[in-house]
Write a protein that binds this DNA or RNA. Structure first.
Length: 465
RNA sequence: GUGCCUGUAGUUCAGUUGGUUAGAAUAUCAGAUUGUGGUCCUGAGGGUCGUGAGUUCGAAUCUCACCAGGCACCCCA
């Protein structure tokens, strides 16, 4: 094909869009039911807003947009009086990062949480806290695409900012439960708390190594205990450190059992105790809210480094797919933009992955591909006038209908109705005009019924049946 | 950024140890009663065999390079 779409991006056909909208509508409905309000932010943000918020890996995955203008003037060789040879210096020093900042100042958003934090700071005076917003927009990541991974995909975020009550965490869990129940997708919610992870690092005495520890233990169910310990040793952890981490990785049992085992291990660590307290509060309330399928997962780490409290991830049970929803609490995301003491907590549904799961499990309802209910076959100018007024009356009754635009062969017009899965066709030709009749053909059964045209909508009840 | 796999009609794929003009199914379009679709029948269009080089009398087939796509790791929705 000559004109491909960009790798990792897709076109969507009508049927696919109807399926996507089914997911979006389900999520929006639940968000609204919980009192969240919609906002949007631009696709493009200044790179200064985005850079450094997602870790080093995230910076690499940002799509950067080239400035307009002519860079050759910035790259004159030799020292010129204006000092405009910075680009050449960058080339000489192999400093591509600095060079990037010289020629790119904008980038495509990587997620919706950071732009939201920026939004909150910019609109402090227009917002009343706690602020509950939802936002459904595409995000872009310069990743290498693979199954369930796209370069352009939709996130469906809900965040509550300006309240540190753990009731917010509980509400978000309820939302997750409602959305996936409604979609009939069996899921497992994995819950953890960053404070617990921090405390583990503290207990070992390697607070600065929290990222290494979490990344390693995150792989526990993938590569197994031995390899995780091996990886830790490679990362400069001593034999003693590893021995301290080992019992934590071996914790098993029900949520309550895991909690009590950790309580013993993390005893004396203020952060750890706080984390465990938060976690058990949330789990307890979630239980009272009758949310099932929540697992306390010590190995859940999540790379986004702005999380400070609860972290969660949702996986589909019956299909091989990465996490389809993620989220957590961030205590100081607006702090980076100059406004302190605003704690937020949010979740994000990955629409594209949910789509893939529903498709694989055949869980899309049959009736979502709504189409035209009735097609008027075009017999010519005179006949069309009759169709126009009939169509108008039908639309007033909220029946979607259309008149075939060209006076083509009946066969072609019938085929159009068939291809578009239009259930009814109206035929008003010379004969019918003369007899003041309209013939309605049921495309499913093939039956044709003749109605009196004066009683224009006498066939209405049949269409709706 | 690292590793593995795959490139033949719009799509899904055949194509024998290298051998004449590269096939099928499906989709598209047209016809089979000029006022009737979905089934059936007939026909048509559609391919620089990913690109380029090499080996050979001869390459879709063998070799190399490049390009594209997919999958896994990393990380994530």
């Amino acid at each position: 094909m000559e004109y491909k779409v960009v790798k990792g991006t897709r076109d969507f056909l009508p049927l696919q869009m109807q399926k996507r909208n089914y997911i979006f509508n389900t999520i929006i409905e639940v968000y609204k039911r919980h009192g969240f309000l919609p906002i949007e932010t631009p696709a493009l943000e200044n790179l200064s807003t985005l850079m450094g918020k997602y870790g080093e890996e995230g910076d690499k995955l940002l799509f950067k947009v080239l400035n307009s203008g002519d860079f050759t003037s910035l790259a004159t060789t030799g020292n010129n009086p204006n000092g405009n040879d910075v680009l050449c210096d960058c080339v000489k020093n192999n400093d591509y990062k600095k060079m990037t900042t010289m020629i790119c100042e904008k980038g495509l958003r990587y997620d919706l949480t950071v732009p939201f934090a920026r939004f909150v700071v910019n609109h402090l005076n227009d917002i009343s806290f706690p602020f509950k917003r939802y936002q459904i927009q595409p995000v872009w990541r310069a990743d290498r695409p693979q199954k369930g991974r796209y370069r352009e995909f939709y996130q469906c975020d809900a965040d509550i900012i300006g309240s540190d009550s753990l009731m917010n965490e509980v509400e978000l869990l309820e939302i997750i439960d409602e959305v996936f129940s409604s979609l009939k997708l069996n899921v497992n919610i994995k819950l953890n708390n960053r404070k617990i992870l921090a405390s583990i690092a503290q207990v070992i005495g390697k607070q600065d190594k929290i990222v290494d520890i979490t990344v390693a233990i995150d792989k526990l169910d993938k590569i197994g205990m031995d390899k995780v310990l091996e990886e830790l040793k490679e990362k400069d952890f001593s034999e003693q450190d590893v021995e301290k981490i080992k019992p934590i990785l071996m914790i098993k049992g029900t949520n309550e059992e895991k909690l009590s085992q950790l309580k013993t291990i993390l005893q004396g660590s203020a952060v750890g105790e706080k984390g465990l307290e938060e976690l058990s509060y949330v789990m307890d309330k979630a239980k009272k809210a009758e949310i099932k399928n929540i697992d306390f997962d010590i190995t859940l780490a999540r790379g986004l480094n702005y999380y400070t409290g609860a972290i969660l991830e949702v996986k589909a049970n019956d299909v091989q797919m990465g996490s389809i929803t993620g989220g957590g609490r961030y205590d100081n995301l607006t702090g980076i933009f100059g406004v302190k003491d605003l704690s937020g907590v949010g979740i994000s549904f990955g629409e594209d992955r949910i789509y893939d799961c529903l498709e694989e499990l055949n869980l899309f309802p049959q009736d979502i591909s709504t189409t035209t209910t009735l097609l008027f076959v075009n017999f010519g100018e005179k006949e069309n006038e009759m169709c126009l007024s009939l169509a108008k009356s039908l639309r007033k009754e909220n029946v979607s209908c259309e008149i075939y635009p060209d006076c083509s062969k009946i066969k072609k017009q019938m085929k159009y109705a068939n291809d578009k899965k239009i259930p009814f066709v109206a035929l008003i030709g010379e004969k019918e005009i003369e007899d003041k009749q309209v013939v309605i053909k049921n495309m499913t059964t093939g039956e044709q019924t003749t109605y009196n045209i004066d009683d224009a909508l006498s066939f209405l009840s049949d269409l709706k049946a």
